[in-house]
Write a protein that binds this DNA or RNA. Structure first.
Length: 304
DNA sequence: GCAGGTCAAGTCTAC
DNA sequence: GTAGACTTGACCTGC
């Protein structure tokens, strides 16, 4: 048997049927204190259930949905409402400790630190401030990173990268949790390594994006960018029924896990599996692995 | 109960 | 010009 138990696994946001989710939301026009609290407490309660599920499946990492606190960074939200929920977030930190699952986040495409537009940058910083605050309240340590993409190119990639560097140096608090991921269109792993080296930030290797938008890279540099922390990587597989070129598949194929392993042989890495079937994709992957003589970390769940 | 329209935000590509 | 991609279809209204 090939032993891949050094790969920690995890899924994100919700179960595959979306019944248990940290990402409930509502329309901005319906924003009231009661709606806000109602949705938040449902998200928080499901978050604990998702931690339980992760623990039961012997998973290492879980990505918390950005909608956990609805409209947290929106100007229409009364900031005193955030104060009201702080103690409940702090009580959830006990559950995180109890289940021992690593928590990270990945804000939406609207967070763009390379944008030339001041209003976009300001909104991005507000959104990141919210993510950092949430993880702080949850008592998450420095392995709880907030993963962003570099953003757009705006006709001049070098200038966009320069703006990104300037912003992170100006707002040095970003360095506490920020991590940067290669994307499938503009900024490949080589670009992200270049950027992260200058900013001393960790690189999130997305295997799927790398296969679509490849570059040469030194795997040791990716690993060392984490400065002793366990790296977080992302893995997904192409859809079995071909759809759009960059759409994530429902499942994870064992070949992709083996290819990732081949790039980072034997290293302890946490891998978020970005499959649409979420926890069911992990169960299927473990079965596939067993059929192929591979032991994955979540194997113990199959034994109940 | 169900169908269909709508939803905070940016940027880019495919059609 | 618009839909769709991205971390994700859920929510809401009108019938």
């Amino acid at each position: 048997m090939k032993d891949l138990r050094h790969l920690g696994l995890g899924f994100f946001c919700s179960t595959s049927d979306n019944r248990i989710t940290t990402n409930r939301k509502f329309k901005l026009s319906n924003l009231t204190l009661s709606k806000f609290l109602n949705v938040f407490y449902q998200n928080l309660s499901d978050f604990v259930v998702l931690l339980e599920i992760s623990k039961r499946m012997n998973l290492s990492i879980f990505r918390l949905g950005s909608n956990m606190v609805p409209f947290a960074s929106h100007s229409n939200l009364d900031k005193s409402w955030l104060k009201m929920i702080e103690k409940d977030l702090k009580s959830a930190s006990e559950a995180i400790r109890k289940y021992g699952v690593r928590i990270t986040m990945h804000p939406g495409q609207h967070v763009i630190l390379s944008s030339p537009r001041k209003e976009v940058l300001d909104a991005s910083l507000r959104e990141l401030e919210y993510h950092f605050w949430l993880l702080d309240c949850l008592g998450v340590g420095n392995d709880g990173v907030v993963v962003v993409h570099v953003g757009g190119v705006y006709g001049d990639k070098k200038e966009a990268l320069k703006r990104f560097i300037f912003v992170v140096r100006e707002s040095s608090w970003l360095k506490e949790r920020l991590a940067i991921e290669n994307d499938e269109r503009f900024y490949n792993l080589e670009d992200v390594l270049w950027l992260c080296e200058r900013l001393n930030l960790p690189v999130v290797f997305d295997y799927y994006h790398h296969t679509i938008n490849p570059s040469d890279f030194d795997s040791k540099m990716v690993l060392s960018s984490w400065d002793g922390r366990i790296p977080e990587f992302h893995l997904s597989s192409f859809p079995t029924v071909s759809k759009k070129f960059n759409e994530h598949g429902d499942w994870i194929e064992i070949e992709d896990v083996l290819s990732l392993e081949n790039l980072f042989k034997g290293e302890r890495i946490d891998v978020i599996l970005e499959a649409k079937k979420k926890e069911k994709a992990i169960e299927r992957l473990i079965e596939l692995a067993q059929d192929n003589g591979v032991v994955l970390s979540a194997r113990s769940l199959m034994k109940g």
